[in-house]
Amino acid sequence: MNAETRKYLGFSSALFLAAILQAVYADAVRIKAARPDFLSATAVLCSLFCDANGGAAVGFLAGLLTAVIAAPPHAGYGSLVVSRVLVCSVIGWLDDRMFRDNYLIAVLMAACGTASAGALFFIFDPEIHFSHWAKSLAGTILYNSFLALPIYALIRWLIGVNKKGRTS
């Protein structure tokens, strides 16, 4: 199996695992309005290892999985997918523009990516209660920032990145 195939198999596995965790634990580990968004965090962190096109593919799968497990009919199914594709492809596009294989960058990108995905979704599909949405998003950003470290480590392990940042 070549490195590229292994990488995208690793991303798919991580996203499916994130979808299962999202389904089972997202509400159970809620603190006030703060809930984790395993899928967004995983997609954003996978995109750190991609270019813009790879990021778009990761975002597409993440958005689709989020929509399938969470979205009721006529309530932003397509918007979820499109917002994730946009965010992940932008993160992928930053490929050559920033140093990426770093845990601090992972935390930062998880926070920024979650915020951007939430904001884009709000623009596509505005909600009635802005304050409720804002509180919930702020909580999710905090949660995802904490989750970024273990998720990032898992992704690195799944796609076989060694300590020097090279894929095996």
Partner: peptide
Amino acid sequence: FQAVLVFLILGALAGFWHN
């Protein structure tokens, strides 16, 4: 950015198809 455009269109189509 060909694949980005394709996935954006696919995303919009997935939403349309679902609804």
